[in-house]
Amino acid sequence: MSTFGSRLRELRINKELSQKELANHFKISESAVGMYEREQREPSFELVEKIADFFEVSTDYLLGRTNDSSLKETDEDSKINVAFYDGLKGFEDLDPDEQQFILDMVEDTVARFKKRKAERKAKKNK
Rank of each mutant, 00 (worst) to 15 (best):
S2H: 15
T3A: 01
F4Q: 03
F4R: 03
G5E: 05
G5D: 01
G5H: 04
S6F: 10
R9T: 04
E10D: 14
E10P: 02
R12L: 03
E16H: 15
L17E: 07
S18I: 05
Q19I: 03
K20F: 10
K20D: 13
L22Y: 00
K27Q: 14
K27S: 12
S29M: 02
S29N: 00
A32L: 00
M35N: 15
M35V: 00
Y36A: 05
E37F: 00
R38Y: 07
R38A: 09
E39I: 01
Q40G: 11
Q40E: 15
R41Q: 15
S44H: 01
S44N: 01
F45I: 10
V48N: 01
K50E: 09
I51M: 13
A52Y: 01
A52R: 06
A52P: 04
D53R: 12
D53W: 03
F55Y: 02
F55D: 05
E56I: 05
S58N: 05
S58W: 07
S58M: 05
T59E: 13
Y61I: 01
Y61R: 06
L62Y: 04
L62K: 03
L63F: 05
S69P: 02
S69Y: 06
L71I: 11
K72T: 08
K72R: 11
E73V: 09
E73P: 05
T74Y: 04
T74F: 03
E76C: 04
S78C: 06
K79I: 11
N81S: 13
V82K: 15
V82C: 03
A83N: 13
D86E: 14
G87D: 03
G87R: 06
G90W: 06
G90P: 04
E92D: 11
D93K: 14
D93I: 13
D95P: 07
P96L: 02
D97Y: 08
E98W: 07
Q99Y: 05
Q100G: 08
I102W: 08
L103F: 08
L103Y: 00
M105D: 06
V106F: 08
V106D: 06
E107I: 10
E107G: 14
E107N: 15
D108L: 14
T109Q: 10
T109D: 12
V110Q: 00
A111I: 14
A111F: 09
R112N: 08
R112K: 11
R112F: 08
R116G: 10
A118M: 12
E119V: 14
E119A: 15
R120N: 09
K121V: 08
K121F: 07
K121L: 05
A122N: 08
K124L: 14
K126S: 15
K126E: 15
